[in-house]
Design a binder for these strands. Structure first.
Length: 639
RNA sequence: GGCGAUGUAGCUCAGCUGGUUAGAGCGCACGACUCAUAAUCGUGAGGUCCGCGGUUCAAGUCCGCGCAUCGCUACCA
């Protein structure tokens, strides 16, 4: 039963920042929206699917410099990589927006001007009190007697040339809006997270950067010495796309943003307040999904465990890959990605249940009826039950899709497929075929299987567009289908000819795969990112010394910090260190460590730290203290 | 430290507003069948539903406390 009118669907992926090539995270979100869009199109909805690339900012400028090219040439290249990746993957986006397009820039400037004119963008005399020696700003609270706590000098007043969006002003409104619309942000866990953010001041949002430093951006319309900083540029793509094409009235109020959980704050806090300030209505839903984890760890470049979507396409096929992604992630939660899981899913669901149902059905049809689709004979109870089950599926599936429960939607269809396999074993068509008196019964069974396959193929098509079309081609159906075609159990043309072909989903040899996975060595790590080169003179400014930990205790006001008392030769000093997750206070006492001895002191949650100790950290955040090979007295210099 | 999420069979997970002997898929064991991609179908083994208290006639499902994992957050020199 349809619960909501499924009329208009405007869905967006984030626009991806073009400082790296697409990976599984980008691909998942994009496939997800593609699947959702295809379901809505199938249902006959007015559907618009937007993706694109985010192309401004300092990082891009640097990357272009490093590549010896211009920012524009650089973003052209990487944006094209994204686009062609999606094209190869058959992503059915309706529009691909780039923030460097003039139509986008125009809208950004218009909205900035509007918000500025109404007084919600202010020139940030931010920070105010600045200690020259610390090179940082202090708040009144942090100062001790009006002096810098580190250097005990009077800070001077400085203002940084930034513009700020008065976001804090809209906090109460946003809180109300989210509370009164339970499904604005979903699933609920992320809604709670945003509400938690809104319980405390969110401050104002810096929205500009000096053009002198970052020329690669959209100039503020009223002050061309500044360019727009990320949010007022990137987020606005969702709107500028429609505005620049005159589609706002048609789509905007139906907007659904799909994002991964790492960008909840910009989309859940910044974006709605921006819209409010611009006098625009809120989007309809912010849909937040989790991460694909590999070996319990978040995939990251430095770990070298990035899964390249196109690799897996080549190996398993686009459709099977999409099916796995949709079937094995519960929306909103993290999921684990395992190639073996993918292979098992292919074998169990696609090859054994679905592919084989097609194969056995067409096999029998060919053998017993020359491949001609028979008319139904009289419907017995079993066949009627199968028919009822399948004709009920479209609404069940679309309701689940509406709730973003893609995994369950797919399982519903597969339950039907399994039921059809059961039906075959119960009806034993191979026995019916031996008795001419049962020709009608055999016709019914064969036709029912064909219809089940046809309906399943329609309902699975948004996830597996190519294979499901191929499936219907084998059934002899070549015309386009709609959801209405899935609501009937007599959609095939009696007397038409089936066109059996190759198995849709070849089984994966699991034993061979297990072997090859076992033999796999670690994937090669990505290149390291290096900092700027320093001279030996730069290095000589640093003073490292051996120190002995003579006492250690937990920082009273922080979780991760230990307060260490170090003996450095004749000196005793206190160092606050963020190693608590890996070293407890008592295990630290007596250890010899390396300390940076001439680092400016700093207060860490109330305790002054006079230096820092060195430790190695791996990509998982695991720490190991730097130490000595041979025991040397504390105070010894390290070079 | 604060906030939040998660914790159900070997594995991946369903279990909505509390109600009969707790479910699915995969894997495993045994059996059936032979139309089919060594597929399918049936049967079975396997769970103190993280722990402890509480509310209730009745709790995996509500409440409290605790534990574990993860995330966000508190300027991890």
């Amino acid at each position: 039963m349809p619960t909501t009118p499924r009329d208009v669907f405007y869905a967006t992926t984030p626009i991806f920042y073009v400082n790296a090539d697409p990976h599984i995270g980008h691909a998942y979100t994009t496939i997800l929206v593609d699947v959702a869009a295809r379901y809505h199109r199938l249902a006959g909805d007015d559907t618009y699917f937007l993706t694109g690339t985010d192309e401004h900012g300092e990082k891009i400028q640097k990357a272009a410099d490093a590549a010896g090219t211009t920012p524009q040439a650089y973003v052209d290249r990487v944006s094209e990589t994204f686009k062609s990746t999606w094209d190869k993957m058959g992503i059915s986006y309706d529009a691909f927006i780039r923030t460097t397009e003039s139509r986008h820039q125009q809208v950004v400037q218009d909205i900035l001007q509007r918000v500025y004119d109404q007084g919600d963008i202010i020139y940030g005399e931010y920070g105010g009190l600045y200690c020259v020696k610390c090179e940082r700003y202090y708040t009144e609270k942090e100062l001790e007697g009006g002096l810098c706590p580190q250097h005990e000098i009077e800070p001077e007043y400085r203002s940084e040339a930034n513009y700020f969006f008065r976001m804090e002003k809209y906090r109460p409104w946003l809180k109300d809006a989210i509370e009164s619309q339970p499904d604005l942000i979903r699933p609920e866990g992320y809604r709670n997270e945003v509400l938690a953010m809104l319980r405390e001041p969110i401050g104002d949002l810096s929205i500009s950067r000096p053009r002198a430093r970052v020329p690669w951006g959209i100039p503020l319309p009223w002050d061309s010495d500044h360019v727009t900083y990320v949010w007022f540029d990137a987020l606005l793509n969702y709107y500028s796309e429609l505005e620049s094409k005159g589609l706002v009235d048609r789509y905007w109020r139906h907007a659904q943003h799909f994002i991964a959980k790492d960008i909840v704050k910009p989309h859940g806090v910044f974006w709605p307040t921006m819209l409010k300030a611009a006098g625009l209505p809120l989007f309809k839903h912010l849909n937040v999904h989790g991460y694909w984890l590999s070996d319990e760890r978040k995939m990251s470049k430095s770990l070298g465990n990035v899964i390249r979507p196109l690799d897996l396409h080549d190996r398993y096929g686009n459709d099977a890959f999409r099916y796995y992604l949709m079937r094995d992630m519960t929306f909103g939660l993290d999921a684990s990605f395992h190639e073996l899981g993918l292979a098992e899913r292919i074998n169990a669901d696609l090859a054994n249940d679905l592919g084989n149902l097609l194969n056995r059905t067409l096999g029998m049809l060919g053998k017993y009826r020359g491949g001609v689709v028979p008319a139904f004979g009289p419907l017995d109870a079993d066949t009627q039950a199968l028919s009822d089950r399948f004709t009920a599926l479209p609404d069940e599936v679309l309701d689940l899709v509406e709730e973003l429960q893609f995994d369950r939607a797919l399982d519903r269809v597969m339950e039907g497929v399994r039921e059809a396999n059961r039906y075959v074993s119960e009806k034993k068509p191979w026995e019916l075929a031996k008795d001419d008196a049962k020709a009608d019964e055999l016709d019914t069974v064969l036709r029912a299987c064909l219809e089940a396959l046809r309906v399943a193929s329609i309902l699975l098509e948004p996830v597996m567009p190519e294979k499901m079309q191929a499936l219907r081609t084998q059934l002899g159906v070549t015309s386009d289908v709609t959801l209405e075609d899935a609501r009937r159990f007599d959609g095939l043309q009696g007397g038409s000819q089936a066109q059996p072909g190759e198995p849709l989903f070849p089984r994966v040899d699991l034993d061979a795969l297990k072997e090859s996975l076992a033999g796999d060595t670690e994937a090669p790590a990505e290149a390291l990112e290096h900092k700027d080169t320093v001279t030996i003179d730069d290095f000589a400014k640093l003073e490292f010394r051996v120190a002995e930990v003579v006492a250690a205790e937990d920082h009273p006001k922080a979780d991760r910090l230990l307060v260490l008392t170090l003996q450095v030769g004749p000196e005793t000093r206190t160092v606050v260190s963020g190693i608590k997750p890996h070293y407890t206070a008592d295990t630290m006492v007596g250890k010899k460590v390396i300390v940076v001895a001439n680092l400016a002191p700093a207060k860490l949650r109330g305790i002054e730290s006079q230096g820092m100790i060195l430790a190695a950290e791996d990509a998982d955040g695991k720490l190991s203290l730097a130490g000595l090979d041979v025991d040397l007295p504390s105070g010894s210099e390290v070079r």
